[in-house]
Design a protein around this nucleic acid. Structure first.
Length: 923
RNA sequence: GGCCGAAUGGUGGAAUGGUAGACACGAGGGACUUAAAAUCCCUUGGCCAUUAGGCUGUGUGGGUUCGAGUCCCACUUCGGCUACCA
């Protein structure tokens, strides 16, 4: 029998499906293990060979854990809501659901061919009403809770209301949008609408005016992580800042816990660091500056409390509410003009434009420590969204303040001994303070750190300010002016928002005729007919963002068809959390923050039993494309081989990598590729046309997309799986290069030839030779350790070595081949399953227990010690295995070859090190 | 600007501080074959040498060590993420 991958893979994939081999149930007899891939957005382009990299790695681990006796949950589903399907719908009128369903079908067939051990009975789609019911449910719960900062926990809003009824706003510890002060009587006197507004200030899901990233081209707002360098991540369209009344999630309330709990996670340091930066904890102080001749007090935030004596001016963000309060009549026109100018600029223009700009408000503030009058300016280098939107400017020790001061000719007062501020600011937090003496506080002579602490203490005592920890993490904007997303379970009664009762969920996405905003500028849902409750109250027109559906999907897999809860306590208590999560780093500041937040919220409610969703995270690298080029001689239809192109004036042209093999162009297929090349002529080198190559992003336009289907068709899924792993470490980014896949395929055929020669089944019950035993035990040890360490490329290499050794030893012994096939099963499940059954087993190879290695087969009978002098290996001595250290030393000293190297010198010492090296040090 | 990571043959990549370059591709040579494919064997970091063997070698410069690709310091280059964050 020949190795026929098509027959084997088709047959076993069918068997696994028929037998439901990979379905799992809660089984309290067995330990659980939860392996999860980040579920894909099913794009129209289908999978390329880069996508399955992480899936293959996690599949190997899932199968391995199953063979180790774990009950393994390994599900898959689709992040089905998203912009591309909607953009496509706008262009073509095709319902996004139709596009999405088709794309999912394509993804599924591509995934199926690779032979994953997913439990497809647990498949979920975020756009499925049975699923998004629970997204809406979570939103309602967030609406009905506030965050208690003393308990560090979400609490029902009713508790807050009780407090208001009894004591007003006094004594509450709640995360809030702004600080409110009212009495119980004032609360009781409020209208329905006023009460609603007050509660919005505390709810975890709340409606609020906030500065949003508005993308006019996409017609929607975007979250911070959906914007990069002033343009939208999807599409790259310009984004502007705008205040809008939007649904938001109070993620910021969870910032301290999101930060602290990072330490409990087995994630890469780099991704934890990225999250730490994104959360952006900074310890500093809030301080009040009174406006001269007014009772307005402006609050600023600073991490450099020590530099207050160097504050020579203050700056407000153009959007700051203080601007209206303090601008003098004389300056009002100029300030308004400036604000208009800033407003017109997009975020990108604002970032690009490095020119310093700003305008004086006409007002002066009083420095609370020195008592000096300092001017207050407005400039767009101060952001409304961070801190309080107002800063104290210390030009001597902050480069942005310095640039501003130089531009507008404001004074620069150095505060640190020896700091030269004639050319640039001195930003380092070190040195001794000078020029820092006021009527009540003297910092001169202190180190910066001491000065910060002293100032903080002083301002707290004097009531000028307070120590404050500030977080950069913003609340998540949760509204999208889109159609293809989860509808909010919200209706408006007399303008007051209410959530729908839980029994009425899911609130299904209505049909609409066009997917554009309405003529009046309302979101697409404004087009839906009868978009109201049965009582006729209008429903919310926005939909939820992409991250809503992906924030708790890992919980739903535990209990995917439960109609009464997101996940039952039984299922959740058994599966608990994801033990291994595999996916790309691009979600570091998006999905991976939102999921943690969402999970912590549900944890506070007692709905889930683990405070973190993903215990261990592995980030697979990106697979880049490897493009091929042909070189056309200018103004001809003649193409010259890469090695000869320097002799001509040529233009490189991307050529489809699928008609190139080992960089050699298939010239016939090239002529057939496109009509304009039908008459192409070639200048060959050594009879071949060699293409040039470059590493680029994998994309259609570069003609470097490799479809896994083609690889599976030609070499089989097992070869694809092994090759993707063999390419390099899972975490590393690397270009896809199909050259070299033959080596892996050759390995599988060699493995096959241990079992079959022609139609003869070679397997015997003979006792294996010591070499064969050593070979297989070496493999067991290596593969076991490598899988645990997620080092699959070296595992594949170890398989190749073992098979080569067994072939050389002509070993066909069942007792060696059985563990070999068992070990290979996670990597190449189809061929392993086939051979496993040929060895006479009936169960699936995935239930074959993982073999254990025995060190006794790995011991050498004699050991060779390289002997080195001063670090250089000179010769080798051989001693029986087990020889102790002293005997090795004696043997080394007695070896006549040593004399050759001693050369009159004396031996200072002899060191026997663990790695079988004897090191002789001469003096 | 900030943070993180990387740098090893023609290529992808191996090396708990202990014989650098495993494994694979590619390349060269050979066997089998009418031929091709497939398969098998040999060579393959560089330099010198007929061989034996020698020298040299992990981005650069220093350091620690009996011993450094690996640890420390400085630098260079390249990637990734992030950014007027006060």
């Amino acid at each position: 029998m020949e190795y026929n991958h098509k027959d084997i893979e088709k047959r076993w994939q069918q068997r696994w499906k028929d037998d439901s081999t990979y379905q799992v149930k809660v089984d309290r007899e067995k330990p659980k293990f939860y392996v999860l891939d980040m579920f894909p957005y099913p794009s129209g382009a289908g999978l390329h060979v880069g996508h399955p990299l992480g899936y293959i790695a996690s599949d190997i681990f899932a199968r391995y854990k199953r063979q180790r006796g774990f009950n393994v949950l390994h599900p898959m589903g689709y992040d089905a809501y998203g912009l591309p399907a909607e953009q496509y719908a706008i262009q073509t009128g095709q319902h996004p659901e139709k596009t999405t369903t088709e794309n999912i079908a394509r993804y599924r067939s591509q995934l199926d061919r690779i032979g994953f051990c997913y439990d497809w009975s647990r498949e979920i789609r975020t756009c499925d009403p049975g699923y998004y019911k629970w997204t809406q449910w979570a939103f309602i719960e967030m609406f009905n809770h506030y965050y208690d900062t003393a308990l560090q926990k979400a609490q029902p809003v009713e508790k807050l209301v009780e407090n208001f009824e009894a004591r007003g706003s006094q004594g509450i510890n709640a995360a809030e949008s702004k600080h409110l002060n009212f009495t119980a009587d004032e609360w009781k006197a409020m209208s329905e609408k006023e009460k609603s507004d007050v509660l919005m200030n505390y709810r975890i899901a709340y409606l609020g005016n906030s500065m949003v990233n508005w993308c006019p081209k996409l017609g929607t707002v975007l979250a911070n992580d959906e914007v990069s360098e002033g343009v939208s991540v999807r599409g790259g369209y310009p984004v502007e800042q705008k205040v809008m009344y939007q649904w938001c999630l109070r993620v910021s309330a969870y910032a301290p816990r999101l930060l602290d709990d990072l330490d409990t996670l087995q994630w890469s340091e780099s991704i934890k660091e990225t999250q730490r930066n994104w959360i952006g904890r900074s310890e500093g102080a809030e301080m009040q500056f009174r406006i001269d001749g007014s009772d307005v007090e402006m609050t600023i935030f600073t991490t450099r409390a020590d530099t207050v004596f160097g504050v020579t001016f203050m700056v407000l963000a153009p959007e700051s509410k203080y601007v209206d309060l303090i601008t003098t009549d004389g300056q009002r026109a100029a300030v308004e003009a400036y604000r208009e100018e800033v407003k017109r600029k997009t975020e990108r223009e604002r970032l690009m434009d490095k020119k310093v700009s700003g305008v004086f408000t006409g007002a002066y503030a009083i420095n609370p420590l020195s008592g000096k009058k300092i001017p207050v300016w407005v400039s767009d280098y101060v952001l409304a969204g961070y801190g309080t939107g107002a800063i104290m400017a210390v030009p001597a020790h902050d480069s942005r303040d310095y640039a501003f001061a130089r531009h507008f000719d404001l004074p620069v007062v150095p505060l640190i001994e020896g700091a030269d501020v004639s050319q640039e600011s001195f930003d380092a937090k070190e040195g001794r303070m000078i020029n820092s003496e006021g009527p009540e506080l003297n910092l001169n002579g202190l180190e910066v750190k001491e000065a910060i602490a002293r100032t903080k203490k002083f301002i707290e005592e004097k009531g000028i300010g307070r120590v404050k920890v500030n977080y950069r993490l913003r609340d998540a904007i949760f509204s999208r002016q889109r159609y293809w997303g989860e509808p909010f379970p919200v209706y408006y009664k007399d303008g007051v928002p209410h959530v729908l009762p839980l029994e009425s969920l899911p609130l299904q996405l209505p049909e609409i005729d066009k997917y554009l905003p309405t003529e009046t500028g309302e979101p697409p849902l404004g087009r839906a007919k009868n978009w109201a409750t049965t009582e006729g109250y209008p429903l919310e027109l926005n939909t939820m963002p992409g991250f809503a559906g992906s924030s708790a999907y890992y919980l739903r897999y535990m209990d995917p068809r439960n109609e009464d809860a997101l996940v039952s306590p039984e299922a959740n208590n058994y599966w608990r959390q994801v033990d291994l999560y595999v996916g790309g780093t691009e979600h570091a500041t998006g999905h991976l923050i939102y999921s943690r937040f969402w999970n912590k919220f549900l944890y506070d409610l007692g709905k889930v039993c683990e405070p973190e969703p993903f215990r261990k995270l592995v980030n697979q690298g990106m697979i880049q494309g490897r493009s091929n080029f042909v070189y056309r001689i200018k103004d001809t239809n003649t193409f010259v081989s890469a090695g000869l192109r320097k002799q001509y004036d040529t233009t490189p042209i991307h050529v489809d990598v699928n008609i190139v093999s080992n960089d050699i162009l298939d010239t016939d297929r090239f002529r057939a590729w496109r009509p304009e090349y039908a008459t192409a002529e070639f200048i060959l080198e050594e009879g071949k046309y060699i293409c040039g190559w470059a590493v680029e992003k994998m994309s259609k336009s570069m003609f470097n997309v490799v479809n896994p289907d083609d690889i599976v068709e030609r070499y089989g899924a097992d070869t694809l799986r092994l090759y993707e792993m063999f390419l390099g470490p899972v975490e590393a980014s690397k270009p896809w290069d199909t050259n070299g896949i033959d080596g892996v395929n050759r390995f599988l055929r060699k493995l096959w030839s241990l079992f079959w020669k022609g139609d003869t089944f070679l397997v015997t019950d003979d006792e294996p030779s010591p070499e064969a035993l050593k070979s297989i035990h070496k493999l067991i040890k290596k593969v076991t350790q490598d899988i645990e360490a997620f080092s699959y490329n070296t595992s594949v290499a170890a398989f190749m070595i073992c098979v080569n050794e067994l072939a050389a030893a002509k070993c066909h012994s069942r007792s060696v081949l059985t563990p070999l096939v068992t070990l290979l099963a996670p990597f190449a499940p189809h061929i392993s399953e086939e051979l496993w059954h040929q060895l006479g087993n009936d169960t699936t190879v995935n239930d074959a227990p993982w073999p254990e290695w025995d060190e006794k087969y790995l011991v050498e009978s004699s050991v060779k010690y390289p002997v080195s002098f001063n670090g250089k290996v000179r010769y080798t001595i051989e001693v029986p295995a087990g020889t102790d250290k002293d005997a090795v030393q004696a043997a080394a000293l007695a070896d006549p070859a040593a004399a050759r190297w001693l050369d009159g010198k004396t031996i200072r010492k002899v060191i026997v090190v663990p790695s079988k090296i004897v090191n002789i040090v001469l003096s």
